[in-house]
Amino acid sequence: MAGEQAPAQREAVWRQQMAMTVSKRQREWSRTHFAAYGYGWRLSDADGLLKVSHTGTLMGMYSLVTMLPERRSGFVVLINGEAGEARSVLDQVLSERYTTPARTRSVAYYADALEREAQAPAAKRAPDTSKRTAIAPAALRGRLGLYRDPWFGEATVCARDGQVEFAARKSPLLAGKIVSVGKRLLVDWSADEVDAEAWLDFAAAADGAVTLTLAKVDPDADFSYDYEDLAFVRVGDCPGGESRP
């Protein structure tokens, strides 16, 4: 019975649930026409064949699982280090061994392609945020306080040592000073391990509540920094007045 159920279960988790943007790199490297998310898997076509994959990213550890069902093949990549580009190159080269075995593009070929990509001017790059000014608590009066996102939990935007700090209660690494860059606010994370900074935007809801949303400063940052999915609402004052707890 289990053997009979497996194909149906596999078809269910590999069914497209959410469309994803096909990147320029996917089009050029693999002639990809579609990309989507299933139940826990990324789905796409590579050189005309179905590709089922997912990455894993944690500080100092990068991984990849790729399956090519029509070739009854797959592979796993485990890297003990910060190596996102190496993972991309290995995924491409190993995939091609099954999708287009006659193609002779090497690791060096794709490493050089990434180098050219990094050096080429692009419209979608992180803006210059080098000119930063610390925000005084008085500038955010009425917006300081305790915020809550239904999924992520609580975070504070509170005064500390004459400045303002954002701090997530359940994620200690997500804490840093709020600074202004031009007309926008940005969180300058204190921890070096957090390499994707976030814009902060305050707004007023229809019922008068103060809301807070975050967005990646670098639009090309790893998708796992899904700040855009958070929807904070102010639910109270800063604990102990305007000071961070």
Rank of each mutant, 00 (worst) to 15 (best):
residue 109 Y to H: 14
residue 74 G to A: 06
residue 45 D to C: 05
residue 205 A to V: 00
residue 192 D to K: 10
residue 37 Y to W: 14
residue 99 T to P: 01
residue 50 L to V: 13
residue 211 T to F: 04
residue 220 D to I: 04
residue 107 V to N: 01
residue 41 W to Y: 15
residue 43 L to H: 04
residue 231 A to S: 14
residue 68 L to A: 04
residue 119 Q to F: 07
residue 70 E to C: 09
residue 89 V to M: 02
residue 36 A to S: 11
residue 202 F to G: 03
residue 231 A to C: 08
residue 47 D to I: 07
residue 6 A to S: 06
residue 45 D to V: 06
residue 152 F to I: 09
residue 122 A to P: 00
residue 5 Q to H: 07
residue 171 S to H: 13
residue 129 T to Q: 00
residue 23 S to C: 15
residue 84 G to Y: 01
residue 47 D to V: 05
residue 57 T to K: 12
residue 123 A to W: 13
residue 100 T to D: 12
residue 45 D to T: 06
residue 154 E to R: 13
residue 213 T to C: 02
residue 187 V to F: 06
residue 206 A to N: 08
residue 145 G to I: 02
residue 236 G to C: 07
residue 143 R to W: 05
residue 132 R to E: 13
residue 153 G to D: 08
residue 207 D to H: 02
residue 240 G to P: 01
residue 10 R to W: 03
residue 59 M to N: 14
residue 177 K to R: 14
residue 141 R to H: 12
residue 20 M to R: 13
residue 104 T to M: 14
residue 208 G to C: 01
residue 151 W to T: 14
residue 35 A to N: 13
residue 201 D to Y: 08
residue 242 E to V: 09
residue 182 G to I: 07
residue 193 E to G: 08
residue 172 P to D: 12
residue 162 G to N: 03
residue 94 L to E: 02
residue 226 D to M: 02
residue 187 V to S: 02
residue 109 Y to G: 00
residue 23 S to V: 11
residue 84 G to K: 04
residue 95 S to I: 03
residue 188 D to F: 02
residue 168 A to N: 09
residue 52 V to W: 01
residue 125 R to Q: 07
residue 112 D to T: 01
residue 13 V to F: 06
residue 170 K to I: 07
residue 164 V to E: 00
residue 70 E to A: 07
residue 245 P to I: 05
residue 150 P to Y: 05
residue 79 I to S: 06
residue 218 D to M: 05
residue 172 P to R: 11
residue 100 T to Y: 00
residue 164 V to T: 00
residue 167 A to T: 05
residue 73 S to H: 10
residue 25 R to N: 08
residue 21 T to L: 12
residue 166 F to T: 01
residue 243 S to Q: 15
residue 13 V to G: 06
residue 207 D to C: 02
residue 149 D to Q: 10
residue 78 L to E: 05
residue 185 L to Y: 10
residue 6 A to R: 01
residue 59 M to T: 14
residue 176 G to S: 04
residue 114 L to F: 15
residue 210 V to K: 07
residue 55 T to I: 00
residue 132 R to K: 09
residue 136 A to F: 05
residue 79 I to V: 11
residue 167 A to K: 09
residue 85 E to L: 11
residue 149 D to C: 06
residue 124 K to D: 09
residue 51 K to F: 11
residue 245 P to F: 07
residue 213 T to L: 04
residue 55 T to C: 09
residue 119 Q to L: 15
residue 206 A to S: 10
residue 44 S to K: 12
residue 66 T to S: 15
residue 71 R to M: 09
residue 128 D to P: 00
residue 178 I to D: 03
residue 126 A to D: 04
residue 163 Q to K: 10
residue 23 S to Y: 12
residue 179 V to K: 05
